[in-house]
Write a protein that binds this DNA or RNA. Structure first.
Length: 227
DNA sequence: TGGCCGCACCGCCTTACGTCA
DNA sequence: GTTGACGTAAGGCGGTGCGGC
C-alpha cells in the first residue's frame, strides 16, 4: 500500500498571493478617500429592476423605523466579471475597486464586500480540501500502523523461537539473532554477528539492522508530510 | 521621536434574504 | 402554498497599517 503522497506544498498555510498587491496601498491623495462609498453610480435601466428595492430600502433605513434588509442579487454578468477579476487579483486597490464598481454599476462597497466574501469562500474550499487530504492520510497511516504492529508481533514470536540462520559459506548454523527494542524510536532491530563479519572485520561485530532492509519489511518508510 | 487619533481595509462571525427541492 | 436547506450579500466587531498632528 502506498503512503498517501504529500502534496507539492509542504505547508498548509492558506496564503493568497496577489502579484503586485501584497498589501493594500495607502493612497492618501487618492480620490477614493473622502469618497462616499454609499454613493450610487449612475444606474442604467436594466439595473434598476434589481437594484431599486435595495436602494429604496436604504433610504427607508434613514427613517429609523427598523429597515427590513433586502438582499440584492448580482446578475450573472456581474458575477462573471467579478469572478474574472478575482482570478486576476484576490484583492483590489482603491482604484481597481472604483473602476470595477463603475463597470459593474455597483457601489464600491458592494465590490469590496463581494471580494471579501469570495476570499472567504475560497479559503473555506481550500480548508475542506485539506481536511479531506488529512483524513485520507490518517487512514493511510492507520493502515500502515496496523501492518507494522503485526510485523512487530511476528518478530516478537521469532524471538521466542529464533530461526536458524545458516552461513552461506560453511553452511553451519550462525549465532542466533537477538531482537532488541530501540529505546528511542521503539523500533525492533535485530543484531546478527556472522562469522563472515568476524572474518572480515576483527575490529568489532557488524550489526545488520532490519531497518536497512528493503521497504517491504519492517522498515517500511513512513512518509511524513511536512505540515 | 514617540504617542495619539482618524481612516481605510482586512478577516471572521453572524444575520437575513433569495432560491430551490 | 409551506418548509427547510443552502448560497450569499451585507452588517458588526476587532485588529492592523498608515498618515497627520
Amino acid at each position: 500500500m502506498a503512503v498517501f503522497p504529500p502534496t507539492g506544498s509542504s505547508s498548509l498555510e492558506l496564503t493568497i498571493s496577489v502579484p503586485g498587491f501584497s498589501s493594500y496601498p495607502s493612497l492618501p491623495n487618492s480620490s477614493v478617500r473622502g469618497l462616499d462609498i454609499n454613493q450610487v453610480p449612475s444606474i442604467q435601466a436594466d439595473q434598476e429592476e434589481w437594484m431599486t428595492a435595495g436602494m429604496e430600502d436604504e433610504e427607508d433605513s434613514s427613517n429609523g423605523s427598523g429597515p427590513p434588509r433586502k438582499k440584492l442579487r448580482l446578475t450573472k454578468e456581474q458575477s462573471r466579471l467579478l469572478e474574472e477579476s478575482f482570478r486576476q487579483h484576490h484583492t483590489l486597490n482603491p482604484k481597481q475597486k472604483e473602476a470595477l464598481a463603475m463597470q459593474l454599476k455597483l457601489r464600491p462597497r458592494q465590490v469590496e464586500v463581494w471580494f471579501q466574501n469570495r476570499r472567504a469562500r475560497s479559503k473555506l474550499k481550500q480548508t475542506e480540501m485539506e481536511c479531506e487530504y488529512l483524513k485520507r492520510w490518517f487512514g493511510s497511516l492507520t493502515e500502515q500502523n496496523r501492518r507494522l504492529q503485526r510485523e512487530v508481533e511476528e518478530l516478537r514470536a521469532m524471538k521466542v523461537g529464533p530461526p536458524t540462520v545458516l552461513s552461506p559459506h560453511s553452511c553451519e548454523p550462525l549465532p542466533a539473532s537477538t531482537l532488541t527494542m530501540c529505546p528511542r524510536c521503539e523500533r525492533v532491530t535485530t543484531t546478527t554477528t556472522t562469522t563472515l563479519d568476524r572474518d572480515r572485520d576483527r575490529g568489532g561485530p557488524t550489526k545488520t539492522n532490519i531497518s536497512s532492509a528493503p521497504a517491504t519489511t519492517l522498515s517500511s518508510k513512513v512518509a511524513t508530510p511536512a505540515l
